[in-house]
Design a protein around this nucleic acid. Structure first.
Length: 234
DNA sequence: GCGACAG
DNA sequence: ATCTTGTCGC
């Protein structure tokens, strides 16, 4: 059961999805990226509750200036439900469609969700990195698994995130008096490097620019698509 | 069995 | 995730 393309994720049962994660786990690489980063990408999904249509987008930014240089988006449909721990199976098919529209791939990607900070080390960022063979980082707004001590209330205060005696990521306070974010390597980047990169991508908001702008992008696309589908009042 | 549970 | 106005703190 090794050759399942993302196009068929919709047909998988939760049990089969878990089996696939266990196979992919053996391919994870979290050694440090040793090439200079010039461009970084941010990806996200938006959708209307109760609907199967999803809007996926990727924005590319110059690093470390955080200046947007490109963006792509697509509209797709998904039937795989949201199940904690299996988020990738719902969002990756659409994300890959957007990825394929990119003329120039970025040096590293930031995904809205966990990397290896996952029960089977296969958060969406790790899954995406493995399928595209691209360095990736997971930056989630809340915890999925793992234990940690609350980081101090200072910008960039951080504390390690553990799971079964293993270091799986970092809880990072990106902004004073705001809840911290959960940073973990996706693929081809180290734990230390993932945090350093996220810090360099942080500006005036809690969410780092790649993911923050990707979220704004897909939300705009969703609203636009909605307007073009609503019959005009007159 | 109970509680937790990315987006 | 999305819905949705005001409101409390800095």
């Amino acid at each position: 059961m090794e050759f399942i393309s993302p196009d068929q994720y919709d047909q998988l049962t939760a049990s089969e999805a878990v089996a696939l994660q266990k196979e992919l786990r053996t391919k994870i690489n979290i050694t440090a990226l040793n090439i200079p980063i010039r461009f970084i990408g941010g990806a996200d999904i938006s959708f209307n509750k109760f609907e199967e249509t999803v809007y996926a987008g990727i924005i590319i930014l110059k690093y470390p200036e955080m200046i947007p240089v490109d963006r792509v988006s697509i509209v797709a449909t998904t039937s795989f439900p949201y199940i904690s721990g299996l988020l990738a199976f719902r969002e990756i098919p659409a994300l890959l469609k957007a990825w394929n529209k990119l003329d120039q791939k970025p040096d590293v990607m930031v995904l809205d969700g966990q990397g290896i900070a996952h029960e089977r080390r296969l958060g969406i960022a790790t899954h995406f990195g493995l399928l595209t063979d691209t360095p990736s980082i997971g930056c989630a707004k809340t915890r999925l698994t793992g234990t940690y001590i609350e980081p101090a209330d200072n910008p960039f205060a951080e504390s390690p995130l553990f799971h079964k005696h293993e270091r799986i990521g970092t809880v990072l306070r990106t902004k004073l008096k705001c809840k911290p974010v959960f940073v973990s390597p996706g693929h081809k980047v180290s734990i230390e490097q993932s945090v350093a990169i996220i810090k360099n991508c942080t500006r005036k908001y809690r969410i780092p620019e790649p993911t923050r702008l990707a979220h704004l992008l897909v939300n705009d696309i969703r609203i636009l698509h909605k307007e073009n589908n609503i019959p005009p009042l007159f």
